[in-house]
């Protein structure tokens, strides 16, 4: 799966290959370069530190140094460890196997792309023959409900009718009741953007979770996020036990180290990626492509 990474590692490890025999110091030099590449890609400082430590431990092991192709062995170790970190081989499909109506809750920082992703997700699920209902549970941001209604109109998917000033938990409960009566099998809950340190608003998400018991709780994160990604993701995950991550705005040129960092600190898979502002720009996540991107290929 990580075959295409070899090229990048070829350059990082060119010096390594130049040596007939490898010394521990040669390997450490090469790994220092790997560290820089990862930090430049916004992978979190501690995540990089742990990564380099575990690669070093394996790569300077006697088996590697004594092998006939030590450089190859080192490359393989880096590749394997990166694969582990990116969630290679793990199941990252959406799980909606519950009695309908099934709820999907989207949450995250302000401006991450939640409302847009709600629309994209609704469109995707309808293509998969589900019958989704969009639920505007953001009563704070100016025109947030209007935004979701517009999105719903653009893709012909109904939006539960609410007004600002209502309680988000009550909106979600009423929407579930409405879905029950009208044959919608999936509720997509658009929550307001909030800071992970905002106790009151974080508490609101807990209450929505307790009441609606969403099958999927997706943390929506901007691919351009820097070092803070881990702090934020950890806080949302600790409170809500998220089921996955949606990484948005990957249509730009951000290296996307946030993906790796979030995956590493929460252990939760990135399930979907946003590739544009249009409502069909939602794709499944490919760990190998992401790893290439982070390494700058």
């Amino acid at each position: 799966m990580f075959d295409s990474l070899t090229e990048k590692f070829d350059s990082v490890f060119k010096k390594l290959r130049g040596h007939g025999r490898l010394s521990e110091e040669n390997i450490r030099d090469a790994l220092r370069e790997v560290r820089l590449v990862l930090l430049e890609a916004d992978v979190n400082y501690k995540v990089v530190k742990d990564f380099v430590a575990s690669v070093t431990a394996r790569a300077v092991g006697q088996d590697v140094l004594k092998s006939l192709t030590p450089a190859q062995q080192v490359i393989k170790v880096v590749r394997d460890e990166l694969g582990l970190l990116m969630g290679e081989g793990e199941d990252n499909s959406l799980d909606l196997a519950a009695r309908p109506p099934v709820s999907i809750m989207l949450c995250g920082l302000q401006g991450a792309g939640k409302t847009t992703t709600c629309g994209k997700l609704a469109l995707k699920l309808r293509k998969e023959k589900r019958n989704p209902l969009l639920v505007p549970a953001d009563v704070y941001r100016p025109a947030a409900i209007e935004q979701l209604k517009t999105v719903g109109r653009q893709i012909g998917i109904p939006v539960y009718d609410t007004q600002p000033g209502q309680d988000p938990v009550a909106i979600c409960e009423a929407a579930r009741h409405f879905a029950d009566l009208n044959g919608y099998d999936t509720l997509i809950l658009d929550t307001a953007g909030r800071l992970h340190i905002d106790q009151e608003l974080m508490g609101e998400l807990s209450r929505i979770k307790a009441s609606l018991d969403p099958r999927e709780i997706l943390f929506v994160a901007d691919a351009m996020t820097g070092q803070d990604a881990v702090t934020v993701a950890k806080a949302f995950d600790e409170l809500l036990n998220i089921t996955g991550v949606v990484l948005t705005k990957l249509d730009g040129d951000a290296r996307g180290g946030a993906a790796l960092s979030i995956r590493a600190v929460t252990g939760k898979p990135v399930k979907l990626v946003g590739m544009g502002e249009k409502l069909d720009a939602l794709e499944t996540f490919h760990p190998d492509r992401m790893a290439q991107r982070i390494l700058g290929m």
């Binding site: 430049e40 351009m224 820097g226 180290g257």
Partner: peptide
């Protein structure tokens, strides 16, 4: 610029 943005903000 969003303060949560990493190195991409420079670009």
């Amino acid at each position: 610029l969003d303060a949560t943005t990493g190195q991409n903000a420079l670009v």
